[in-house]
Design a binder for these strands. Structure first.
Lengths: 158, 158
DNA sequence: CTAAGGAAGTTGAAATATGAATCATTATCG
DNA sequence: CGATAATGATTCATATTTCAACTTCCTTAG
């Protein structure tokens, strides 16, 4: 209890950390987006490509992809439609569950991925990773992983 | 140089830290948004309110507000229009520069802020701050503040 | 087997975001 | 001073996101 009404306001130290996280999170996402722009991709596009690239047969069920990328089904559906129009992915029916669909990386999508990935990694390094020490990174992971876990579990309700 | 083409891919440790940051950043923003929903506010709305609340005379020039909240002028303009319709802020002309406008907190906006802030802080605590130790927070700030600084300086070009 | 309910995905309309063009005013400079 | 550039902000068009409604197929209890 800090003040009259019982609200525990943030201390200066807490404020600073919180704002830093917030700022980095937004500035970084903008910067990465900008760095992807020359390739005609958005962060969302890229994330889809990464997920598909890393998957068995370069394919994922729409639902799983939605979960993995933290998007709503609807949003993902639109997103995939756009990427389909751009030739990066295609939809394929699912044998085992005829309601289901796979999003599948096309040849062109895979090529794009191989071409863009190095630039993206460079961008992540330049604007984040390489600005931190190994200890920083360890500490960061140690701090944030539990938070992520908490948030994932809290997700969907509360 | 790690591989054939000279790309320095991320090590496992780097990957983990990077993904953790990414995940927290998005999950948290969703969670905070959800916690604001009962009050009819979005994260963006709230951030505007915070900025205005903390400013001299509860007012800020549009440009400054745009910079402070990392939004484009266009986006901020729309945002303020919406908040104006909701009765949270109003626009006022600027004497010294007749091109300029102030966004000003209304009484209702200020009341809203006072009512919502405690809940928002509680939410930030519950989903972030209170999951971290004091040392975590110090380290976080130490790591991220320079990154934020870098990103702010890089911003607008490169 | 079948009806009820749930899960996978899509769709369309409304809300919000982005980017370029525009308008009015102020700054600058020869 | 007057022309030109730059600033502050909005607007219009387009793209993306959101939300609710809907379709199809699957699951399960009776």
């Amino acid at each position: 209890m800090d003040t009259e009404n019982g609200t525990r306001w943030l201390s200066d130290e807490e404020q600073r950390a919180w704002r830093a996280h917030l700022d980095v999170s937004r500035l970084l996402s903008h910067q990465l987006e900008r760095d992807l722009q020359p390739f005609g991709l958005t962060n969302n596009d890229y994330e889809i490509l990464v997920n598909l690239s890393e998957s068995e047969d370069h394919r994922m069920r729409m639902s799983d992809l939605a979960t993995a990328t933290l998007q709503s089904k609807s949003r993902l559906s639109h997103q995939i439609t756009r990427m389909e129009n751009a030739g990066l992915v295609r939809r394929e029916n699912c044998e085992s569950d005829r309601r289901g669909l796979y999003a599948v990386l096309t040849e062109q999508g895979w090529d794009t991925m191989r071409q863009v990935a190095p630039h993206h990694v460079a961008s992540v390094r330049k604007h984040f990773i390489d600005l931190l020490t190994t200890d920083d990174l360890k500490a960061l992971y140690g701090s944030l992983a539990p938070v992520a876990k908490h948030l994932r579990s809290t997700r969907g309700r509360v």
